[in-house]
């Protein structure tokens, strides 16, 4: 008789979509997501990210870099997510300052280089 593992009593980990075109930065961002106790799903372009969001319904939050190739790609993606998937939380990282008016509602922009504490804290808040 096969042993059936009982489902864990804790809530399943929240899924966070990480959008980053730089592989080295991707490693750091994925680590932040895991530090926050979440599961990271990787996308290296905005188009890939949209594809994943259309295919899966379990994405709780998106962590995206705003400094990707095609300078405005990151912010365009963030705006599209806020428009099409309003419940998804948005955490963005950027080396540039952004006007509050440019940032989608309930979106948070944190700077580069990374402040691990603040990024992890923000992700944990989203996942809670």
């Amino acid at each position: 008789m096969a042993q059936v593992q009982a489902p864990p009593s804790v809530a399943p980990s929240a899924h966070v979509l990480v959008v980053e075109d730089d592989p080295i930065l991707m490693m750091a961002l994925v680590e932040f997501v895991e530090d926050a106790g979440c599961v990271a799903i990787e996308a290296s372009t905005a188009a890939e990210a949209i594809g994943i969001l259309e295919a899966r319904l379990d994405i709780r939050a998106v962590l995206t870099d705003l400094d990707m190739r095609g300078s405005s790609a990151g912010m365009t993606l963030a705006a599209a997510i806020r428009h099409r998937w309003p419940p998804i939380d948005l955490l963005m990282v950027s080396s540039q300052p952004w006007d509050a008016a440019q940032v989608p509602a309930r979106g948070l922009v944190l700077g580069k280089p990374f402040d691990r504490r603040r990024i992890v804290a923000a992700l944990q808040k989203f996942a809670a």
Binding site: D22, I24, L25, M27, A28, E31, D67, V93, S95, Q96, G111, K112, P113, F114
Partner: peptide
């Protein structure tokens, strides 16, 4: 902008 992005990469390389 480039400096800050590079510092983020330095952080990432170091932690990895």
């Amino acid at each position: 902008h480039r400096l800050k992005n590079t510092l983020a990469i330095v952080q990432s390389i170091a932690t990895q």
